[in-house]
Design a protein around this nucleic acid. Structure first.
Length: 434
DNA sequence: TTTTGAGTTGTTCGA
DNA sequence: GTCGAACAACTCAAA
């Protein structure tokens, strides 16, 4: 008997329950879906392709990569190799969930088997005693911890006999304009994890908010594509700030599972009425990193340069878009998803909704980040700004956060008056409340 | 059913 | 420069 193992966001061979569930003779398949590739920028695509090449190597060059619509491709390939079952890790995001139902229907007599998920605890499993979902992180995290999770599954590529693909496999070349990226694939993920675990996780609480230091784990791209499963990380961790970041990932996946609409629209629908602006020029300035606020511009340029942005800076630029420019959070969310190598729908959209105040655990409406204060606080020497904003490299120390006080710089004036826009934002938020 | 305590990440102002 | 209080009220979770 033959199985198809259809890889999606589980591009690894270790700790992979779907491999255990498949028949010994298996075809490894990945489908390049336009829904995934078309909205993606060069960095995101290149990281995906490199993960696929790494996986292909582990599978003795037998990963079949096909472009097309999975609803057509998966049944066709499964029939071609005479498979009796198709094995996947379950997808809980809105598009993937619907797509899987359609694939399952199109497969007819061929079994569609979901084993495991990208989460330690699958979305929907942690509920209040009355069966309804949590809407606040802290109680969710307690219930999540009480629920517990299985240890890693013992798998590797060799537990299956990967069969020769019936057609020609083609992993695309990297697109042009790819920035410098972290090493892709499973071995790189495990290596990066061990380094963080052994050298940096201890100092994570004090370093995590410092974009000028290598204080974060950098695990998000690997978690996004499933090069490593969060179980592997959790196995090494005790409760603490870093583990909590993984729980946030699980929480937002749970929230999105219960409210698939929240990927596109306000979770708290009262915010549908908030007054928004429509200034394309301001949005472009934000995207390009020429707002005249150094920490904002450094972050936005880091995103374009590396396909990644430090989390503290993500909050700062998000607050700026939403509360200084008064633009819709989903404009920013789409830009992030296009460029971030770690862009994950649930985490991305809900972190944006948090910044906008429309999400779970809405921030107090008066919490408006001051981009200058944030810069001085979290990039105290200005090293982060100077790294990504070359025009400011001649400015020493933290003065770099107030370039408008320095004459003769070739750097934009602030596009808004923060103190004024803060008042505007507060007034608009107050209006929504009433 | 009612009550109580708590809720990721901030800023400003005045002492 | 540092520190504490004010900034509001509301929803959620659990007792």
């Amino acid at each position: 008997m033959t199985s198809v193992v259809w890889f999606r966001r589980d591009l690894r061979t270790r700790d992979h329950p779907a491999l255990l569930a498949a028949d010994k003779d298996a075809l490894a398949l990945f489908v390049l879906d336009k829904r995934l590739t078309e909205p993606s920028g060069a960095a995101r695509l290149a990281f995906l392709y490199r993960c696929l090449r790494d996986l292909n190597e582990q599978l003795d060059d037998r990963l079949l990569v096909v472009s097309g619509d999975p609803v057509e491709v998966v049944p066709r390939i499964a029939k071609q190799v005479d498979a009796t079952s198709v094995h996947v890790s379950a997808d809980y995001a809105p598009y993937g969930h619907t797509r899987d139902q359609q694939v399952e229907a199109a497969l007819g007599d061929i079994d569609f088997v979901r084993s495991g998920s990208p989460y330690a605890v699958a979305p929907g499993r942690v509920t209040k005693p009355d069966g309804t979902p949590y809407k606040v992180f802290t109680p969710f995290s307690r219930a999540w911890a009480d629920h517990g999770w299985r240890g890693p599954a013992d798998t590797d590529a060799s537990i299956l006999d990967w069969i020769e693909p019936p057609g020609r496999s083609r992993i695309p070349q990297d697109p042009p304009g790819v920035p410098e990226l972290p090493d892709a694939g499973e071995a790189a993920a495990l290596g990066a994890w061990e380094k963080f675990r052994d050298e940096r996780v201890e100092d994570y609480p004090e370093n995590r908010n410092r974009p000028d230091r290598p204080g974060t784990s950098w695990m998000s791209p690997y978690l996004r594509w499933g090069c490593v499963h969060p179980r592997t990380l959790l196995d090494d961790l005790t409760p603490g700030p870093y583990r909590n970041e993984l729980v946030w990932r699980e929480f937002y996946a749970d929230v999105l599972w219960h409210k698939p609409d929240s990927a596109r629209r306000n979770l708290d629908r009262r915010f549908d009425k908030i007054e928004l602006d429509d200034d394309r020029d301001a949005f472009d300035a934000w995207c390009q990193g020429v707002t005249g606020f150094p920490i904002v511009d450094a972050g936005m340029r880091q995103l374009l340069e590396l396909g990644w942005m430090h989390n503290r800076v993500r909050m700062i630029v998000a607050s700026f878009l939403v509360k200084d420019l008064h633009l819709p959070w989903w404009w920013g969310a789409r830009h992030f998803m296009k460029h971030l190598v770690d862009g994950d729908l649930a985490s991305n959209q809900h972190n944006w909704q948090w910044a906008a105040g429309s999400g779970t655990d809405a921030a107090p409406y008066f919490r408006v980040f001051n981009p200058t204060t944030q810069g001085e606080k979290f990039d105290p020497n200005g090293d982060y700004v100077r790294r990504f904003v070359p025009e400011l490299r001649g400015v020493t120390g933290k003065r770099v956060h107030k370039p408008w006080e320095i004459d003769g710089l070739d750097y934009p004036e602030p596009i808004v008056d923060h103190a004024h826009e803060r008042e505007v934002a507060l007034a608009r938020y107050a209006a929504v409340k009433n």
